[in-house]
């Protein structure tokens, strides 16, 4: 059983004139396979910074703390090593990569993560099956990665990658943003299909409770001012739905 363990994580970004600004102020969180965790917080609370720091984006600098996956030091790994170790980040704003087709990209990534190239015929069958389940038109396989995709199409492709790469722990950064209700259902079904396996853990980052009606969390963490200020079960999401973040905003800066 895989475990992602985050301990005392502090992260800064470069601000103007050589100054740096601290975004994460001591995050402690453990995600184990078989669990779904939701991190909820207002805009600017540092939720996305947490996601990108775990994935290794060069913009973010870890100043203290640790991140391990099954005891291995994630922070010592390069970005591609983290993905091959079994971490996945579904991005809020997937970038468009000109001239690189979805199919070529997926095959290259699958080859890298699995350590060997899948047979072309089997790969195509697997990809087509996964695309059909996410209601993605087969013509997308030959289109350039994310180029000209709508917001909803980009998110479906993030979940397509999740299913093809089959990581141990998936971090989903605002995967629900910009989706209409039909797309939200399709994407949620994709997440649930992945999470069904007891070997998989999910860390779902979201601003709204809407997606939690379709992807039921086991644990809910409220994120304010760069750290977790409250934790609970699904009932915490119901409280946020009813009363918003106001009660928690006062907890910013208070000792956890």
């Amino acid at each position: 059983m895989s475990t992602l363990e985050i301990r005392g994580l502090h992260v800064s970004v470069a601000a103007q004139a050589g100054e740096s600004r601290e975004i994460l102020r001591g995050v402690d969180l453990t995600v184990t396979a078989g669990q779904t965790h939701a991190i909820m917080g207002p805009n600017g609370s540092g939720k996305s910074t947490l996601a990108y720091s775990i994935a290794g984006h060069p913009k973010y600098r870890v100043t203290s703390g640790s991140v391990t996956l099954d005891g291995r030091d994630v922070l010592a790994m390069s970005v591609d090593e983290r993905a091959r170790a079994g971490l996945f980040l579904a991005m809020q704003y997937p970038v468009e990569v000109p001239g690189v087709t979805v199919s070529n990209f997926l095959r290259t990534a699958v080859t890298a993560v699995r350590g060997e190239a899948p047979k072309l015929r089997e790969f195509v069958r697997e990809m087509n099956g996964a695309m059909a389940a996410l209601s993605i038109d087969p013509s997308f396989a030959q289109r350039n990665l994310n180029e000209g995709f709508s917001g909803g199409e980009k998110k479906r492709h993030e979940i397509l990658q999740l299913q093809m790469l089959n990581p141990k722990i998936a971090i989903l950064d605002e995967t629900d943003s910009g989706l209409d209700i039909d797309a939200l259902k399709v994407v949620s079904a994709g997440i649930n299909a992945y999470r069904q396996s007891p070997d998989h853990g999910v860390l779902l980052i979201t601003h709204y409770t809407r997606i939690l009606r379709y992807v039921r969390p086991d644990f809910v963490h409220v994120f304010v001012g760069g750290r977790i200020v409250a934790e609970g079960g699904p009932e915490l999401a119901d409280e946020l739905e009813a009363s918003g973040y106001e009660r928690f905003l006062a907890m910013e800066g208070a000792p956890a």
């Binding site: 591609d80 990569v97 890298a112």
Partner: peptide, 21 residues
């Protein structure tokens, strides 16, 4: 970042992008 975050080694990611260019 996008390509390497999917496990593609950085040299190969560069090749993909240049080919795509």
């Amino acid at each position: 970042f996008y390509l390497t975050a999917r496990g593609i080694p950085v040299e190969e990611a560069r090749r993909l992008i240049i080919r795509g260019f």
